[in-house]
């Protein structure tokens, strides 16, 4: 028993040590490559069955969702008929594009990937994607999708990779906001619950609800600048506090990701 405990501790030490981490990482990569087709095969068999059960169990919510979708469709049809609709949409899209500053990303190559699984641990907010090192995906690369920054690649096997979401408790994203991007903050993930907080916002900083925050490219940041990350949902300054308490939500709908883009960009050493 003692031997097994010591063996476990040795494995942990190997994994934590910077010099030998590549060994454990390599073993994990191999295991991931072996298990990936097994998971796909089992999922291909079980998913249809699971969908049937999910449909039965969540029948009421499916009906409600269907009803909501029908109403939304009807509203869209009405809007579609209105004069100037297309022009307005075009204007909105142009504004969104300009606001999002996505042209910056157009200079960077990206790899389109499909989410294969929501995180397999309760202790981290992660997703798995179907692209890996052989496809040009590597550790440290930012991942965008569904309207904003999704996270960062933290593990890459040959054909799969794991993305740690910006809501993970270990995630920190340097952002800019406000007029002329004059203000900066650090967004801290609060764990799998999906919340974020903005740290280092001094009292008196003009922050308003709905304000968008973008990655900045200050030295040491893990992301290229200009990627929309989150929007402000609440601001308060507790009496005597040295910074404002700013609650933010990710712009990307992290709970409903299907496809994401891995930006082939690495932080400067």
């Amino acid at each position: 028993m003692l031997i097994l405990v010591l063996l476990s501790l040795s494995v942990i030490t190997l994994d934590q040590s910077g010099r030998t981490h590549h060994l454990t990482s390599g073993i994990k990569s191999l295991a991931s490559d072996i298990f990936s087709p097994i998971r796909s095969g089992v999922n291909a068999i079980l998913d249809p069955i699971g969908n049937v059960f999910a449909g039965v169990v969540h029948y009421n919510s499916v009906v409600a969702e269907n009803h909501e979708l029908q109403q939304a469709l009807a509203r869209l049809r009405l809007r579609d008929d209105a004069r100037g609709y297309q022009l307005r949409q075009l204007t909105e899209l142009q504004q969104l594009l300009a606001e999002n500053r996505l042209p910056y990303l157009q200079q960077l190559p990206t790899v389109l990937a499909q989410q294969t699984q929501i995180g397999n641990t309760n202790f981290a907010a992660t997703i798995d994607i179907d692209k890996g090192r052989d496809d040009g995906v590597d550790v440290g690369m930012p991942v965008i999708g569904a309207g904003g920054l999704v996270g960062q690649v933290t593990f890459a096997a040959h054909h799969t990779a794991t993305v740690t979401l910006i809501t993970d408790g270990s995630s920190k994203v340097g952002v800019s906001f406000g007029k002329g991007n004059a203000y900066t903050a650090t967004l801290d993930g609060q764990g799998p619950s999906g919340a974020l907080t903005a740290d280092f916002v001094l009292p008196g900083t003009p922050v308003r609800r709905g304000e968008r925050m973008y990655t900045n490219n200050l030295a040491g940041n893990d992301f290229p600048g200009g990627i929309p990350v989150a929007y402000v949902t609440g601001v308060r300054t507790p009496p005597g506090a040295s910074q404002e308490t700013v609650d933010v939500k990710p712009l990307a709908n992290l709970g409903a990701l299907s496809y994401v883009e891995v930006v082939q960009w690495s932080p400067s050493p």
Partner: peptide, 12 residues
């Protein structure tokens, strides 16, 4: 082998 958490922790 399949988790993103420290390798060996679940074993311990």
């Amino acid at each position: 082998l399949l988790l993103p958490t420290p390798f060996g922790l679940t074993a311990l």
